[in-house]
Nucleic acid binder design. Structure first.
Length: 366
DNA sequence: AACTCGTGGCA
DNA sequence: TTGCCAAGAGT
């Protein structure tokens, strides 16, 4: 890792901000510095690309224009606003944060990163982003872009996958961030990281700060950032039961904890949870499904393999293979079932994850 | 500290 | 297909 002199730091600031003034992106959440707008955009942008976020952001602002509107919204509407974005706890935590603001902060945002971190769903990165952009506090906002950009500029060899590495980057950036324009600086780093200094095909030869990029000057750009890789997704087998009664679909709401919390799907049974031998036969599966519904939900279903190609869906850490079964529900008494019957016309009113969309598409290709 | 939590894009 | 990456936070 190299160190910059005060003169180099000053030159870097000037060059970066001049470029940002010329070529910084015009994004919907950059039209003002309202903390609510900055906050919503930052939460949406966590692990999510700008292009994906834009339409969600526009709709979210139309539906929930203020912290109060967000605090008062029914959860089903929140999840509908987030449907397809992923990491659904983000939006549930946003509502908790909105209520926290109204209850404990008199509806006024705290103005420092340290205080912002106390709010639900706001971690070190988002606190830095809001504090610097909305309140002009000279603090770093260390996201994936900042890790990548500064690791290359300064040839920082620390493993960014390790939690402790964040504090090293925060110290380094704290020395470089300009006190007069911290928000623009942090956003400029993000723009730089998504244009010239990208992860895969960087174009540093044309970067406004190429002369400051030590890794590029040394021809070692792709060696940075140093990052240990994550384990690959674990395969998990599921059975989806497309059950109908009275012309309606049997839909279930997932538990309030864990993956896809509170979203709606057809019943998804983990094959490993069914009472099956190692080398079970297709006919055994039908019986196992029937038994499962009887025991867990006191429901009589007669399932049958739809003979369709299994649906595959990969999450960050799980790779699902889902076999589709059709079913008829006899005399539906849903007292013990965590869900309800829904007409085809009403299906779209439920917040559903992408994997459910794939299941519908397999059953009824458009 | 390591693991959990979605989805889309890209080579 | 596979693997990795994209404005991370909670537990």
């Amino acid at each position: 890792m190299i160190e910059w002199s005060p003169a180099t730091i000053s030159a870097f600031q000037t060059t970066l901000l001049a470029w940002f003034d010329r070529e910084g992106r015009d994004l919907p959440w950059r039209h003002d510095h309202e903390p609510y707008h900055i906050w919503v955009s930052e939460i949406m942008l966590q692990q999510t690309q700008v292009q994906t976020v834009i339409p969600y952001y526009e709709r979210f602002m139309a539906w929930f224009p203020t912290v109060t509107a967000l605090a008062q919204a029914p959860e089903s509407q929140l999840l509908k606003a987030w449907e397809g974005l992923g990491y659904y706890s983000r939006v549930r935590n946003m509502q908790r944060c909105a209520r926290q603001l109204l209850a404990d902060y008199e509806g006024q945002w705290p103005k420092t990163a340290t205080e912002l971190t106390e709010l639900i769903g706001i971690g070190p990165y988002t606190a830095g982003a809001i504090a610097s952009i909305a309140f002009n506090e000279p603090v770093p906002a260390v996201d994936g872009n900042a890790f990548r950009v500064f690791s290359r500029l300064l040839e920082i060899d620390a493993d960014i996958a390790k939690p402790q590495t964040r504090s090293l980057f925060e110290k380094v950036i704290a020395r470089i961030i300009p006190k007069d324009r911290p928000g623009d600086f942090n956003q400029a780093i993000m723009d730089l990281g998504s244009s010239y200094m990208t992860a895969r095909n960087p174009d540093s030869a044309h970067s406004p700060v190429k002369d400051f990029n030590q890794a590029y000057l040394d021809g070692k750009e792709l060696d940075y950032p140093v990052k240990t890789k994550k384990p690959r997704p674990v395969p998990v087998d599921y059975v989806a039961v497309l059950a109908q009664a009275d012309g309606q679909w049997l839909m279930t709401q997932r538990p309030s904890n864990g993956m896809l919390a509170n979203l709606w799907t057809v019943p998804l049974l983990k094959v490993a949870d069914l009472d099956l031998a190692e080398d079970y036969l297709p006919a055994d599966l039908e019986l196992a499904i029937q038994t499962y519904f009887q025991q867990e939900y006191q429901l009589r279903v007669t399932g049958f393999d739809l003979g369709l190609k299994p649906v595959k869906h990969t999450f960050t850490h799980q790779k699902w293979t889902i076999q589709l079964f059709g079913a008829k529900v006899e005399q539906p008494d849903l007292a013990y079932f965590p869900g309800k019957l829904v007409s085809t016309a009403q299906l779209t009113t439920l917040p559903m994850p992408k994997v459910q969309e794939k299941i519908w598409d397999r059953y009824q290709p458009k």
